[in-house]
Structure formats: structure tokens, C-alpha cells
Amino acid sequence: MSGDPREEVAATGVRLVTVAPDAAEAEPPAHTGDELIGSGCETWQKAVDGALAPQAVVEAIGYAYRQPANVTIREVVLTATGQEA
């Protein structure tokens, strides 16, 4: 696609939504095989103390999807209330 994808699909009824979650809780990356990376991830998650629960991201996506066909939520930016900028 070139240009603005929303413009290219507007006439077809396709709705495009950008979902931009900030830090979200996640399992440490076990696929790396590197203990330092795994422990660093765990330490960071504890330090953040307020990362988004994955379910919060899912609910926001669902909210955007459930809008009437003639309504498009163009962008959803999520961050935990207690998380610093």
C-alpha cells in the first residue's frame, strides 16, 4: 500500500485502527536461552509496577471493534495510570 492506507480502503468499508499499548505485562522471553535477558525482563517488570494487563489491551481492541460500522476509532493509545511518561 502506498500513501495513507485509510484513504485507500475508505470506500470499501474497511476500518483501520492503530492500537499503541505502552508497557504491558508479559512472560520473560524464554526463547532467548540467556538468563541475563530473562532476569533483566523480570526486574524491569517489577520496577515498572503498573504495566498494562494483557486483558486491558484486549478489551480496548474489542471496544474499537464493536463500534457501529459507520464509526471508526482511528487510534487507541494505552498506558497504565500509574506509569510515568
Results as ranks from 00 to 15, higher is better:
1 M>V: 14
1 M>S: 13
2 S>L: 13
2 S>V: 12
2 S>M: 11
2 S>R: 07
3 G>R: 07
4 D>V: 10
4 D>G: 05
6 R>V: 00
6 R>Q: 04
7 E>Y: 06
7 E>P: 00
8 E>L: 13
8 E>R: 13
9 V>H: 08
9 V>K: 12
10 A>M: 10
10 A>Q: 11
11 A>S: 15
11 A>G: 15
11 A>L: 11
11 A>Q: 14
13 G>W: 02
13 G>E: 01
14 V>Q: 07
14 V>D: 12
14 V>G: 05
15 R>Y: 09
16 L>F: 08
16 L>D: 05
17 V>P: 00
18 T>K: 09
18 T>E: 09
18 T>Q: 11
19 V>T: 06
19 V>C: 05
19 V>P: 00
19 V>E: 00
20 A>W: 05
20 A>P: 07
20 A>M: 10
21 P>V: 08
22 D>M: 11
22 D>K: 14
25 E>I: 12
25 E>M: 10
26 A>S: 15
27 E>P: 00
28 P>W: 02
28 P>C: 00
28 P>N: 02
28 P>Y: 06
29 P>F: 11
30 A>M: 14
30 A>D: 08
30 A>S: 15
30 A>H: 14
30 A>L: 15
31 H>Y: 13
31 H>E: 15
32 T>Q: 09
32 T>Y: 02
32 T>F: 04
33 G>F: 03
35 E>W: 08
35 E>S: 13
35 E>C: 02
36 L>F: 12
37 I>P: 00
37 I>G: 00
39 S>K: 04
40 G>W: 03
40 G>A: 01
41 C>Q: 07
42 E>H: 04
42 E>F: 02
42 E>W: 05
42 E>R: 06
42 E>Q: 10
43 T>I: 01
44 W>P: 00
46 K>R: 07
46 K>T: 03
46 K>E: 09
47 A>L: 14
47 A>V: 12
49 D>K: 11
51 A>D: 02
52 L>F: 04
53 A>H: 13
53 A>D: 11
54 P>D: 07
55 Q>C: 06
55 Q>I: 15
55 Q>P: 01
56 A>I: 01
57 V>R: 03
58 V>P: 00
58 V>F: 08
58 V>Q: 10
58 V>D: 10
59 E>T: 12
60 A>E: 02
61 I>A: 11
61 I>T: 12
62 G>A: 09
62 G>C: 08
62 G>W: 10
62 G>V: 14
63 Y>P: 01
64 A>F: 03
66 R>L: 11
68 P>G: 01
68 P>W: 07
68 P>F: 09
69 A>G: 03
69 A>W: 03
69 A>L: 05
71 V>L: 05
71 V>E: 09
72 T>F: 06
73 I>F: 04
75 E>Q: 12
75 E>N: 09
75 E>R: 12
75 E>D: 15
76 V>Q: 01
76 V>F: 00
77 V>E: 15
77 V>Y: 12
78 L>F: 07
79 T>Q: 14
79 T>C: 10
80 A>Q: 06
81 T>H: 05
81 T>V: 09
81 T>K: 10
83 Q>H: 07
83 Q>I: 12
84 E>F: 11
